[in-house]
Amino acid sequence: MAGGRFSLDLARPSRQHWLGYILLAPAVLLIAAIIIYPLFVSVDLSFQNVGIARLDQPRRPFTTANYERLFTSPDFWNACWVTLKLIVIVTSACCLLGLGTALLVNNRFKGRSLARLFVAMPWAVPEVIAVVIFAWIFDSSFGLMNWIFLSLGFIDKTINWFSDPTAAFAVVATTMVWKGYPFVSIMCLAGLQSIPDDYYAAARVDGANAWQRLIHITLPNLRPVLGVTTILVMLWIFRDFSIIYVLTGGGPLKATQTLSIMTYEQAFGFFRMGYASAIGVVTLIICVIAAKLMMSRAPENL
């Protein structure tokens, strides 16, 4: 059998790498089936005028109409602008809050374990539950936030949080920051613990104060972690759907309509799957470019 016609002698030095390929094959095939194939279908659909897509239907004629319509649509540019605003605001807030809490719970103090637990807790809360909590907090008629603001005298009449475009955007951004900052915090905490204590000891000997130690030791050493984390947070905001959909559905007046919400609405609300695929493809391209740009600016060891 060993010398048979179809034998595969993996022990031969020239074929040793075959085993690697064979072991990798199932994973590669699985990825091809669940990622590459749907991606290919999406790209293909985006070049067809399709209402409800079916795989067993004959392909419709090639057209670039979906992209032409997309780039001339004010709704698309509005969705891009809303997505960009959310990325900048939520990512910045998550990074600042995450880094701040990580620095806090990295210190030794009584109850540190409990504090770490509280910092990480929002991350463990399922997204939909977090949204329900925030929907109640910001309820226009019976919400906690209106009551607090009125009690403190900040406002003299209730804010209609979900009927006002600015307020609705603020609610969505706040919810996303609450849900997103613990991830940054956990990553930064891991990064902080990998910085050798000797660096700080040496800096203290040289007379560096806390601020100088943060700027010259902590942040440079955290850069790789912060870079990766920022990209991951940014991509999470890009693709996040449930927070916005449950809180505002993209409204009012499209003030919270991101690219992912727009894609969903066009596909399953208006049954324009060709057009929705075009939005999805453009979103993917924007994500890839943004991630690539951030990676290229990151240090080599990222």
Partner: peptide, 8 residues
């Protein structure tokens, strides 16, 4: 009387 309408 908390300043928030609660009956509609």
């Amino acid at each position: 009387g908390d300043g928030i309408p609660d009956q509609f």
